[in-house]
Design a protein around this nucleic acid. Structure first.
Lengths: 190, 190
DNA sequence: TCCAGACCGTCTGTTTCAGACGGTCTGGAG
DNA sequence: CTCCAGACCGTCTGAAACAGACGGTCTGGA
């Protein structure tokens, strides 16, 4: 039990175990895939190393099967819960971070042909429609399960972001149809 | 001149040099700070190593001052421009990625007190208002400069995302005022 | 009995990362 | 003319994060 530096990812693990109760890394992986993963993604390998660290720090408790698969189940300790609560009480000074390749390409539209941008917009529309359907399905499935209903609130934001982006790309698409984007040719570079 | 693996960051560098003309790493740093940085951020140190790589790959051309500060100025080669165009023509199959600590904390609201969430919402409102003001100022400053006007399009999406998020957090804030969020106490964990 | 497919975990080399650090130049106050 | 603040500019380092290949295990049903 030593002190370690906790990252946001640590708190995702801690919080999820606090909410779900005792969980294996694999449990977490799946749980994250349909919740927090949408606004904080990271490789699943970390879900095996991170709990180990947290256990060594005394924030999680390990229970290992002594037969068969020897699954490792982690549960939260009082110290862990305290740490999580303290973190939740800390102010967040950060703005969200976005990583969007599509926007980069759009930004560079002067270097591309209009047909590239048209394709880009079309693909993005599909992406966002798909994502909206995904979210909508979740909402229907869990929207009225009382136990998780209050977790669903982030879904609302996700959904609204999607609709905003979708509307944007639809507009881009329309503007191209009407020939509004200039061609790459005829523009000097350097 | 060897073949290297190009990352999105490489194309940001390439594209920016194509748009702006010959640039130093420091130029790029500043340019990114007020444009692409908003949807593709990375440490500025990479702006010193990346162009070097790209130069070795024959996609950039190096011109070094032979006096004083010995600034290194990079310009794009034909091969570089071709690579950039090819990339722009490639389909984007990825959805944007969001990293948002505030949403994580909101997701874990059951473990926190309502006053924590109130604080969180309040802070986020400030964050987004600030960012909106920032964007708005840019729009006013560059909105009608013909040379950059077409780059401004991503600003629109940024602005709309901000407004969506702002509205969301305002609603969260209102819902707390009306005592809608449950307290952490009284909920079992594990 | 056997196999497909889900379940579960580890490992590896490469990138990315934050951010401390250090040097250089310019304008203007004294 | 000298000196200093503040902008300008670049490098380096150890620690984290990363993708994703790989390998093993279990269960149901053909």
């Amino acid at each position: 039990m030593s002190t370690v530096r906790l990252s946001t990812t640590s708190y995702v693990v801690l919080g999820l175990i606090a909410l779900r109760g005792p969980s294996t890394s694999y449990d977490l992986k799946r749980a994250i895939g349909r919740s927090v993963g949408y606004f904080w993604n990271f490789p699943h390998a970390q879900l095996y190393s991170e709990p180990k660290r947290l256990e060594e720090a005394g924030l999680l408790e390990l229970d290992e099967e002594d037969f068969g698969r020897r699954r490792k189940t982690y549960s939260i300790t009082d110290a862990g819960l305290a740490a999580q609560r303290a973190w939740l009480a800390e102010p967040v000074n950060a703005h969200f971070e976005l990583r969007d390749v599509a926007e980069i390409k759009l930004f560079f539209n002067e270097l591309a042909g209009p047909e590239d941008i048209a394709r880009l917009a079309k693909d993005q529309i599909t992406q966002h429609e798909r994502r909206i359907a995904e979210y909508e399905q979740m909402r229907q499935r869990f929207g009225d399960v009382p136990d998780v209903a209050t977790r669903m609130i982030t879904l609302e934001l996700g959904l609204e972001m999607e609709h905003t982006a979708l509307a944007f790309w639809r507009r881009v698409s329309a503007r191209i149809e009407s020939g509004e984007f200039p061609t790459a040719e005829g523009r000097p570079q350097r």
